[in-house]
Amino acid sequence: MDAELGHNPSFMWRSLLAARDLIREGSLWKIGNGQSVQVNCNKWLPHPPLFKPGANTHMKVADLIHHRTMQWNRPLLQATFMQSTQKDILRIPLSNTHAMDRLYWKENKAQQVTVRTAYSVVLRLQGEPGPEHSSIPPKVCNFVWKACTDILPTRAHLYRRKVPIDPPCLICGQIDETVGHALWECPLAKNVWAVDQGRL
Rank of each mutant, 00 (worst) to 15 (best):
N96L: 07
K30S: 13
N40W: 08
V115K: 11
N96W: 06
Q86N: 04
L45V: 02
R102S: 12
T80G: 07
K106Y: 05
G34K: 02
L64V: 03
E107C: 13
I92N: 00
Q83I: 10
Q71S: 07
K106H: 11
N40V: 06
G32Q: 03
P131H: 11
V121H: 01
I65G: 01
Q111V: 04
N108K: 07
Q38F: 04
T69Y: 07
N40E: 06
K30F: 06
R68C: 13
Q126C: 12
F81N: 00
K109N: 09
L77V: 05
L94M: 05
E128R: 11
P46S: 09
V115L: 10
D101P: 01
R102C: 09
Q71N: 13
Q83H: 13
R68V: 14
K30H: 09
M59T: 08
H67R: 11
A110F: 08
P49K: 08
L76W: 04
N56Q: 10
C41L: 15
W72I: 06
H98G: 14
A62C: 09
W105T: 02
L123C: 12
R102T: 12
T97C: 15
G130A: 13
L50F: 04
L123S: 10
Q35A: 13
K60W: 02
A79Q: 14
N73C: 11
W72R: 06
L45W: 01
A62G: 05
V61R: 00
P49Q: 05
G32K: 00
M70I: 06
N108S: 08
L64P: 02
C41T: 12
T117G: 07
